[in-house]
Amino acid sequence: MSQPALVVTDLVRKFGDFTAVDHVSLEVQPGEVFGFLGPNGCGKSTTIKMICGLLAPTAGRIVVDGLDVATQAEAIRARLGYVAQFFNLYDTLTVRENLLFFGGVYGVPAGELEQRVDHWIDRLDLGGVAGQRAGQISVGLQRSLALAAAVLHEPVMLLLDEPTSGVDPVARRAFFEVIAELAASGAAVLVTTHVMDEAERCHRLSLMNRGRLVTEGTPTEIRALAGGSIWQVEVAPAGRALTLAESRADLSAVALFGTKLQYRVAEENGTGAPEAVAEWLREQGITTGPPKPVRPTIEHVFLQVLRDAPEEQP
């Protein structure tokens, strides 16, 4: 039985009076892609920085591959691969030079370094820009380069902080294929995101809000949390329809997709029934089409969780 790649227990980080991470606990197994979901500023990045040993926890314990971050930070760093939220490789070095540097810093044996660099350049489609300076390639390729630099030393645990921000959907899909491959070969992956289609690709998910873990489970389990049913209706004018729908306490997961308004209803009858809501909107002067049921997604759960979370000012 292999030990967990990462065990986080009751992790707390405070910045002055502000609690950025509030008693977070989680476990990631080898071969698992663990998704960390939450809005910007919810404490995802702070948690990842503490796992990397870049920030000291205020309280709590982090164990990577059986080693405690508090006492064996250097040994852990050799087992981690880290892709930061913003591109932070060397602009004036070429793609290849960046990879050789990080391989060297992580202690990849000299005899294997070239070969591994070539492999990742090839696998992440960086061949065309290998000789170009990292500051001059596209954002998507920069993300690929950052990922390559993080996996050259074959880390036990890969930490990806919004690895696909600024990347187009096609490249994002390819990126997640590589992540799935790395997991299949035994690496544990912790990936933060606020993009829902990425969340669907994770083995397990954790929803974070205001420094706390709100819920955890497989994507299927998370989707099942969405009680009631989700409906979608064409509306015009869309902006006013959204404001009206949001003002109703009996609707949750209210969101607007173009001219389509979505909402979750808790009950199928009475004034809260989907048709009754559409009827109510028409009475308020909104033009609507017929409501249609929608398959619940993680985003619905997420919106619901955010709405249900107690409003407290930090």
């Binding site: 990397c52 040993g53 760093r77 930061a84 932070n88 490789l89 602009d91 990080f102 810093v105």
Partner: peptide, 13 residues
């Protein structure tokens, strides 16, 4: 420039 973050996360002494 932010490159320090990756250096600090690396195991270099």
């Amino acid at each position: 420039r932010g490159t320090f973050e990756l250096l600090a996360a690396s195991p270099i002494a």
